[in-house]
């Protein structure tokens, strides 16, 4: 059995206890809901994109330490990035979570920073969906901004 310390790294617990960018954004920011039907967790991502750049991002909802901290770290990382940079960043993250096949489109030079701490989740396959919930919801929100 993998050690629990691989899962609950200090940086993860820090973001869980003190989530960053928690809250809502009014329109014209788009909002998108994601949920994990297995456990009932839900997350709402608020995304303000202007001129192809993420000006602001916030999140609300309920979930476990992994889904909440992963989403919190994600919001910190993507704020100020261009849409293309965000998409590449998400691909890099999902590749780390072993969810994308092949390396072709993944830019390994992208530095995930603190988010690397979530790599331990891969040892607990049931929790990968928790870690990626916010990220998949972000992708949906990005699509909304492009509509």
């Amino acid at each position: 059995m993998p050690g629990i310390e691989d899962l609950y790294r200090e940086i993860i617990l820090d973001h869980y206890r003190t989530p960053r960018n928690r809250g809502e954004l009014p329109p014209p920011a788009v909002s998108c809901e994601g949920n994990n039907p297995l456990c009932g967790d839900d997350i709402c991502i608020y995304l303000d994109v202007a001129d192809g750049v993420v000006r602001d991002v916030k999140f609300s909802g309920q979930g476990c330490s992994i889904s909440q901290s992963s989403t919190s770290m994600m919001t910190v990382a993507v704020k100020g990035k261009t849409v293309a940079e965000v998409q590449a960043f998400v691909r890099r993250f999902k590749h780390m979570m072993t969810l994308t096949e092949g390396d072709d489109e993944v830019d390994q030079s992208i530095n995930l920073g603190d988010i690397e701490a979530l790599q331990g989740v891969v040892k607990f396959p049931v929790r990968i969906k928790c870690a990626t919930l916010g990220w998949n919801t972000l992708l949906e929100a990005l699509k909304e901004t492009q509509n």
Binding site: I4, L7, Y8, C39, D41, C64, S65, I66, F124, R127
Partner: peptide
């Protein structure tokens, strides 16, 4: 959270 609880 129950997920964290069951994991521990």
């Amino acid at each position: 959270h129950p997920h964290d609880l069951s994991q521990v």
